[in-house]
Design a binder for these strands. Structure first.
Lengths: 137, 137
DNA sequence: TCTTGACCTTCCAGTGACTGGAGACCCTAA
DNA sequence: TTAGGGTCTCCAGTCACTGGAAGGTCAAGA
């Protein structure tokens, strides 16, 4: 199948597929006209990449996962380890974003938000101390 | 003050400060030796940038915030609006990561994680259907 | 005075993971 | 024959830095 078909079936943009070929994640054959020819196995790889990328694995992690995927002697423990690591990463990111949100919320709650130029958010951003007189959480 | 001092006081890497000058976020004077000379106002800008970047505002948002920061006639409502938008963005990201985590956790829970090559995580990544026979949440 | 080492300069290239566009070739149907 | 898509390569841009090379400057110590 051509790249367009592969793109629709894998839900990866054409450009992305070409890029994946460039970095060696997939190696379709070429027809006489120079067009890429994707086999069913190529399509499987693309689908695998689509799914693992959308689950937050980096390209290099995907490369590792792919080689495990194609290693029929792999231990499932190896895959599980990578996945557990990823979960911890995701947890870390969530925590970061939550504390970020807390700060932003505090700023917004302290701001009267009208036409006056004085603004506690600005004070916060500029590093000035703000008295925590208002609501406490 | 020189760039090194500005770097320590703003907690921004030297390289980053030079980059910020390149894109016009800060315009330090130059001494006879060609060294950048940061005024107290420049330092304030840098600190402002450090804080707002670390709160997840993009460079362009920082540029907007900076001009509001220096506009003594600004309305605090404008600042509040930008910040509220940012909170929504953060919320969206948190939700995404949470659903990501849910999927990853399901995968891990289904995986026996031993020396055997069969691995439900791999099945999942490759798009194969997995029977939801195990624990339900 | 000389040297050492820290600090500063510019410029260029690389990161990750694509994305956009130009210009050209190929294929199919009307 | 023509029109329209699809495909090709190559180059450049994105975002926000980061690293490194090659060289100029400065202050302290021998």
């Amino acid at each position: 199948m051509n790249i367009g078909t592969a793109s629709r079936q894998s839900r990866l943009p054409v450009k992305t597929i070409r890029y994946y070929e460039e970095i060696g994640l997939v190696r379709p054959l070429r027809g006489d006209n120079g067009y890429r020819e994707f086999s069913q196995a190529d399509l499987e790889r693309l689908k695998f990449l689509q799914r693992s990328r959308s689950l937050g694995f980096s390209i290099e992690e995907c490369r590792d996962l792919l080689s495990l995927y194609e290693d029929t002697n792999r231990a499932s423990a190896d895959v599980k380890a990578i996945t557990c690591q990823k979960i911890q990463e995701v947890d870390r990111k969530i925590a970061e974003l939550k504390s970020l949100k807390r700060v932003l919320l505090e700023m917004v709650e302290a701001c009267h938000g009208d036409d006056r130029p004085d603004c506690p958010i600005m004070d916060d951003l500029s590093g000035r101390e703000r008295t925590h007189g208002g609501k406490q959480h």
